[in-house]
């Protein structure tokens, strides 16, 4: 990454731009994180451990992790399909479909929440079809997964798409001329190239799902031990003015987010090294 010409700093504004950036990052991003760190550490290890391993908290981890896992599985499959279709085929409405992918990022989570619960509720367009089949989505664990899946739809698509676009057609033609079948070309040529982006996108989708609040609370039912996610339990503790518990639980989500961020970054670094040796 070190380019010699950057070091010469011929362009003015280094002090100004970096000064503005660092001051802002310190005040808006780092300071609140430090405040929460202080609040959490002042709890002491025993109290902290008791809160984060309480039965109700552990139940929220189980609910959150399983729903996020299910949502990520859906998005891994759907994301790969969408990225493939959008990059590979020319068909009417392709650009429209491409633009639509960003809807879950542009639409506020609360709006997504009330929309999904209305659609999947007993009288909704989808619910009235699914409930006679015995499939309960709204106010059930499956509803949480649906809400998480909706809000993280763009991640896999938007990370895989540019990589897929960059694959030169001649690699595939070489494979084809050597007698590879379409599935072999995908499995042995394309898949290894898009795997890092695919994993990074899936990790991002999973991370987003773990912390999701707005879309989930409307559809979840929010029953302790059954359909209560961790972010909701934090909110409930705040409502009860139980700030130590809120701090401890929030730190669990924060650490999970940092770990997943680290995983994503490692995948990207691994991918870059991978690309360089090619």
């Amino acid at each position: 990454m070190t380019r010699i010409d950057r070091r010469r700093r011929v362009l003015p504004g280094f002090g100004l731009s970096l000064g503005v950036a660092l001051t802002y990052v310190a005040i808006i991003i780092i300071l609140p994180l430090i405040a929460m760190g202080i609040q959490t550490t002042s709890l002491g290890w025993d109290a902290f451990w008791r809160i984060i391993t309480s039965d109700r908290a552990v139940a929220t981890y189980r609910v959150t992790l399983s729903a996020a896992g299910l949502a990520t599985l859906f998005n891994a499959g759907f994301g790969l399909l969408m990225a493939w279709v959008l990059v590979r085929y020319r068909f009417p409405g392709r650009r429209l479909l491409d633009a639509l992918v960003d809807l879950p990022f542009a639409l506020p989570t609360a709006v997504a929440g009330i929309t999904l619960v209305t659609l999947f509720g007993p009288n909704g367009w989808y619910g009235s079809l699914l409930e006679p089949l015995g499939i309960k989505v709204a106010y059930a664990p499956l509803g949480i997964a649906v809400a998480m899946a909706f809000t993280s739809i763009p991640f896999v698509i938007r990370t895989v798409q540019p990589v897929l676009e960059d694959i030169a057609p001649d690699i595939e033609e070489a494979a084809r001329s050597l007698g590879a079948r379409p599935w072999q070309i995908f499995g042995y040529v394309i898949w290894p190239l898009i795997l890092p982006a695919f994993l990074a996108g899936s990790t991002l989708a999973f991370a987003r799902s773990l912390g999701e609040f707005g879309a989930v609370i409307f559809i979840a039912g929010n029953l302790p031990f059954q359909t209560e996610v961790t972010s909701l339990l934090i909110y409930i503790r705040l409502d009860e003015f139980d700030y130590p518990a809120a701090a401890a639980l929030a730190s669990v989500l924060l650490v999970a987010a940092f770990v997943l961020l680290l995983v994503t970054n490692s995948i990207q670094i691994w991918a870059m090294r991978h690309a360089r040796t090619d």
Binding site: P32, L33, A35, M36, T109, L210, G211, E212, F213, G214, S231, I234, Y235, L238, A246, A247, A250, L253, L254, A257
Partner: peptide, 8 residues
């Protein structure tokens, strides 16, 4: 998570 952001 947005909730964690609010808490901080």
């Amino acid at each position: 998570s947005p909730i964690v952001a609010g808490v901080t």
